[in-house]
Write a protein that binds this DNA or RNA. Structure first.
Lengths: 200, 200
DNA sequence: CTTAACTCGTACTCATGAGTACGACTTTGC
DNA sequence: GCAAAGTCGTACTCATGAGTACGAGTTAAG
């Protein structure tokens, strides 16, 4: 599973594959229904070359998603997640929100073509990182514990996705987005006010 | 714009239209790509009847969305939005979250077929209601004012959509959802802690 | 330099879903 | 009860996008 032990690939093939995957990420992040045709064109490669490497749409979409997630992992790994969990989360969001946002549409494309469990698998690593962070925040007493962990992790993702949509619709300035997303996510994770409406 | 002054419609036509719109809402809420064929079948009506009333896919999708929003308006109108804005929001979400959640997929279908502004128009009434509520909460000093109003309103919508997705993926029990959604939305709108990390 | 790997155009097949044409049958409204 | 309005099946056309077949030309690797 680490790297290739395949029957060997020539250098130009490797190059083509890289260009195709990159193009696929770009195209599918703009339109989840982009055709293989468009992707090949964007990659500057013949349609047949594409089929030579991927065989069908699902395989290509999976490769594109995997690539996006690999990039995500890289970004995550570069962030300092130690110290105060709130500050760590802020750093994490600032450095990765745009990537997640851009990939949201691609993810949508993947959902139509890949089994749900496969997508879960691919997300496992980054999701784990976020979960660990949330758990640390809870242990530090700065994140809430009254909602399910799964929700806590995923709602952050949904907020990012939402921000991406707002940004695409011009209802959010790209510059402001990172700050707003961070503020929102922190608000969700923060300890709830002891009793928001006074004792009942 | 109120009701019909049209060349007159027969009772059975009215009935057909109602069945079609209902079926369209149901089908498109399950699969945004549902075919007109499926919808006609679900409505228990011939495909030609459907075309007789709608002409094209876009018209039908628009009618379905409009119907869903009409239902939403009804639900909203039935909720008491006076008093403490937080409690009012809680009431609002409890009574309408499932409707919004179910319609999220339908909304997605509409986005592919209708101009963005048309969708905005259709949403105007319910969106205004929510905005008014948020504004009232701000005036009462219980909702934050440091983020753009548009975001505040829309992020609630995104949270509902996210919850719907989680629920569909079996990661959220349907019974728990209302409470979780409410808690999350309130957390987003609440006044942020004076300075979450102590004075800088 | 030679061969296996790779590229890629052209020209298909195939399935799907939108929308149209036509015409016979049925229901409603007055 | 009769004309207009509505229903609806069958049989199209048309566009699109996935995937296949074939074969000639190009390039990297030993």
């Amino acid at each position: 599973m680490p790297t290739a032990d395949r029957p060997r690939r020539r250098a130009d093939a490797e190059r083509s594959i890289a260009r195709i995957v990159t193009a696929a990420r770009a195209c599918l992040s703009g339109d989840p229904n982009a055709g293989l045709d468009d992707i090949a064109k964007a990659a500057g490669v013949g349609r047949m070359t594409l089929y030579g490497h991927f065989g069908n749409r699902a395989a290509l979409v999976e490769a594109a998603l995997a690539d996006a997630l690999r990039a995500g992992e890289e970004a995550l790994a570069a962030v300092d997640l130690t110290g105060d969990a709130r500050q760590a989360l802020a750093r994490l969001l600032h450095s990765s929100w745009s990537l997640v946002a851009e990939s949201a549409v691609l993810l949508g494309a993947a959902r139509e073509v890949l089994p749900a469990e496969r997508i879960l698998e691919l997300h496992a690593a980054p999701a784990q990182r976020v979960e660990d962070l949330v758990r640390r925040g809870q242990a530090q007493g700065v994140f809430r514990t009254d909602l399910p962990m799964t929700w806590l992790v995923n709602v952050v993702h949904h907020i990012l996705k939402g921000a991406a949509e707002e940004s695409r619709a011009q209802r959010l300035e790209a510059e402001d987005a990172a700050g707003i997303v961070t503020a929102t996510a922190l608000a969700v994770l923060a300890l709830p006010a002891p009793d928001p409406l006074g004792p009942r």
